[in-house]
Computed example of a mutant assay.
Amino acid sequence: MVNLNDCILSIAENGELSQTPKYSVTKAAKILGLSAYTLRYYDSLNLFPFLQRDQNDKRLFSDADLQWAKLIECLRNANMSIKDVQHYVKLCLEGNDTLDERLKIISQQEQTLIDSITQLNNQLALLRFKKQYYENTHKHQNK
């Protein structure tokens, strides 16, 4: 099993994230813009392999955990299923032997987002055309 430092290198742009547990679920959720329920749900699916707990068994998130949560949420927002996210996390924990498979997964998600962006841009262009049409028509009717 890979250690947290190896995972941090893969999620932190500068390779440095604090591993000190310091945020409650509520505080972490607020920082991330997610619900506490979502964080608890992700944890119940073992998507936070390094999450620590206090003496009362309450979850405590570190900066590294928050960045990990951002990655999970990014994958989910790119329409990756929970099952596939779990598989991705498992691959991360297996270490560098799975780099090729993880690269393939991330590349597929990148293409999914590119396709979504293209579709959204096309929809936006149509809406802007219709908006301009209505604005121009409205101007001419009110002359």
Rank of each mutant, 00 (worst) to 15 (best):
A28M: 09
A28S: 08
A29E: 07
A29M: 06
A29D: 04
A29C: 06
K30G: 02
K30T: 07
K30F: 04
K30D: 13
K30Q: 12
I31K: 05
I31F: 07
L32K: 08
G33L: 08
L34S: 04
L34R: 08
L34P: 04
L34Y: 04
S35V: 01
A36W: 07
A36K: 10
Y37M: 06
Y37I: 05
Y37R: 11
Y37K: 11
T38V: 05
T38A: 15
L39D: 03
L39E: 01
L39Y: 04
R40V: 05
R40Q: 09
Y41L: 05
Y41A: 02
Y42V: 02
D43Y: 12
S44Y: 08
S44N: 12
S44T: 15
L45Q: 06
N46G: 13
N46H: 15
N46P: 10
N46W: 12
N46F: 13
L47Y: 04
F48C: 07
P49S: 03
P49F: 02
P49N: 06
F50C: 01
F50V: 02
L51F: 09
R53F: 09
R53C: 06
D54C: 03
Q55V: 15
Q55D: 15
Q55I: 14
Q55C: 12
N56R: 14
N56W: 09
N56G: 11
D57Q: 14
D57L: 11
D57E: 13
K58F: 14
K58I: 12
K58C: 06
K58Y: 15
K58M: 10
R59H: 06
L60K: 15
L60E: 10
L60H: 09
F61P: 07
S62R: 00
S62P: 01
S62E: 01
S62A: 10
D63T: 08
D63Y: 12
D63R: 07
A64G: 06
A64S: 12
A64L: 00
D65H: 05
D65M: 01
D65G: 04
D65L: 04
L66A: 02
Q67K: 15
Q67G: 07
W68K: 07
W68T: 01
W68F: 10
W68N: 07
W68V: 03
W68A: 05
A69F: 07
A69W: 06
A69P: 13
K70L: 12
K70M: 13
K70P: 06
L71E: 12
L71D: 10
L71R: 10
L71Y: 02
L71A: 08
L71C: 09
I72V: 14
I72G: 09
I72N: 11
I72L: 15
E73I: 14
E73L: 10
E73K: 15
E73S: 12
C74H: 14
C74P: 09
L75K: 03
L75Y: 01
R76D: 06
R76S: 11
N77V: 05
N77S: 10
A78N: 12
N79C: 10
N79Q: 15
N79S: 13
M80W: 09
S81A: 00
S81F: 01
I82K: 01
I82D: 00
K83F: 11
K83V: 13
K83T: 14
D84R: 10
D84T: 10
V85L: 04
Q86N: 14
Q86F: 09
H87Y: 11
Y88K: 04
Y88I: 04
Y88T: 01
V89N: 02
V89R: 02
V89Y: 02
K90S: 13
K90W: 08
K90N: 13
K90I: 09
